[in-house]
Design a binder for these strands. Structure first.
Ligand SMILES: [Zn+2]
Ligand SMILES: [Zn+2]
Length: 101
DNA sequence: GACTCAGGGCCATGG
DNA sequence: CCATGGCCCTGAGTC
């Protein structure tokens, strides 16, 4: 290999920030990684409120911080897999799913 | 067997 | 004070 995926080093579709690599199935930044992990970790009462909780916001990179609900949904729509989030407390829980590049 | 790549945890800064 | 954003460590996966 060595060729890797040249797509690394771009920007994530969630916040348009610089990607740190592949996280949860797609190229995301550390911000989305932590936020997505937290969202799954919370997994409790849907505190993520929006304008009617419908998540019908613009879902734009500029308003990503506006509504956590929209941000979380955008992560899913981007292609992030919640199943890859370790909620058991294990660290190196690497997923078997790799991007086709 | 050693290096790489990715994920989870905890930290520091920002709102 | 809490949330966001980031860096660090551990661990699976690859070579
Ligand atoms: Zn991002
Ligand atoms: Zn919203």
């Amino acid at each position: 290999m060595k060729e890797k995926c040249t797509i690394i080093g771009k920007t994530c579709p969630i916040c348009n920030d610089v990607t740190s690599g592949i996280h949860y199935g797609i190229h995301t930044c550390e911000s989305c990684k932590s936020f997505f992990k937290r969202a799954i970790s919370f997994k409790k009462s849907p505190k993520f409120k929006c304008a009617s909780s419908q998540g019908t916001c613009a879902l734009s990179p500029a308003t990503r911080s506006a509504c956590q609900l929209c941000r979380f949904e955008k992560c899913i729509q981007a292609g992030m897999l919640p199943s890859l989030v370790r909620q058991r407390g294990e660290r190196g829980g690497r997923a078997k799913l790799y991007l086709k590049c």
